[in-house]
Simulated assay, not measured.
Amino acid sequence: MVLLCSLGWAGFLVLHLALNGRWWPWLVVSLLPPVALAAVPLVLLAAALAGGAWGAAALAAGCLLVAWPQNGINARALLRRPRAEAPGREGPRLVSWNTQHWNQGGDPERFYAFLRGLDADVYVLQEYLNGFEGGEVWDIDDEERLRAAFPGHHRAIGNNAVTLSRFPLAGPPVPVGACSLRADLRTPGGVLSTYNVHIPVQLTVMNPLRPAFFRDMRRRAGARDAEYAALVADLRDNPHPVLVTGDFNTSAAIGDIRRMPGTLRDAIGACRSLLPASWNARARLRLWRIDWTFTGGGARVGGYRFRDARGLSDHLVQELTLVHPEKGID
């Protein structure tokens, strides 16, 4: 029985590795909690070892190792004291957060008090919009309140994103695709390009037996492809150090995250959580990290954690501190 289960899991894993990120219908399958890619083979391995089924044990161990990069486990957190990714001097403190429709239907005073309490040098905020059933979104204009709440911050607004910065903008904000925003900031260490990212969600909750479900999912897969392509193209042409952060709607188990350039560094190495997760913030058990931060071009992350959103969103807040190399960044 253990051998049969191990063979079944190995067959699933072969399909997952072959189709994930390459065939749009597999997006539904890849929504599984990433930790399942470690939990299932570990259970099979334990059962095989207990029963002396050495062939099944070898197969389960192989499945565990092959899928390890996609299980969402941050093994570096097992170090006694996670270190900054590189030595240097401390840079800006940033927060990145999907606000879930910008306080739609909530108390604006509580919402803005929470934002001010984060006390960041740079705020990278997604979903500057209102959303409705059926996927309809409405643009909003809350700039007057933003100006009053953050008088010492410069503003970059566009593509339903807001970047607030204590550092001046080096130029006008640049829309990236249809859902992300680039803002170049003049920090003490030099120009830093921040990418405020929001990749479209994979599917709409509806009856999966209806043809409309698959039409909608295929359309969304195309939109995701376009957003990733635009983001990667802009990054490759950007000469500045970069910080890429936001809601990718992509877990470690979804192949789309592999599209990010290999020159970028995942900030999770500076996090102390063994199983970091950012969604669903309102649930007791959180199994998905779909909010990511990457750095490149000389910028590094010194500290990184997920912070409670106090019920204001279904996403936790990403909180991080940049570290500039000793020579600064150009």
Rank of each mutant, 00 (worst) to 15 (best):
R305I: 04
V66G: 00
G8N: 07
T293N: 11
L274W: 07
A223L: 14
Y128T: 08
W24P: 08
T321A: 00
L235G: 11
E227C: 10
A50T: 13
V317D: 04
A18G: 11
R305M: 06
F132M: 09
C63Y: 10
R289E: 08
R145D: 12
A18S: 13
P241C: 07
L37W: 01
Y304V: 03
R286W: 01
G298Q: 09
W97D: 06
R80V: 14
R218D: 02
S6N: 03
E127D: 10
N280K: 15
A252H: 09
N74H: 06
R282W: 05
A223S: 11
E109F: 03
G311D: 01
I268T: 14
G269Q: 11
V28A: 15
D314L: 12
M217L: 15
G311A: 04
W292T: 06
L231E: 02
L320V: 09
T204S: 12
A149K: 06
L32I: 14
D139W: 11
Y112K: 04
E133S: 13
E144A: 11
P175F: 00
L32P: 05
I257F: 13
N159H: 08
W138P: 00
L181G: 00
F214T: 08
G296R: 06
S165V: 02
G262P: 00
G302L: 00
V2P: 11
W26S: 09
V95G: 03
P208C: 01
T163W: 09
R145F: 04
G11I: 10
L320F: 13
F306G: 02
W23M: 09
V176M: 06
E90N: 07
Q202D: 12
I199Q: 00
G21M: 10
P239G: 08
V174E: 14
R259E: 09
F294E: 06
R286Q: 11
D141V: 05
H315T: 05
R284K: 15
I140F: 00
G222P: 06
V201D: 07
R310D: 14
L13G: 08
R89T: 08
G189H: 01
A86R: 01
L264E: 02
G117M: 06
A156E: 06
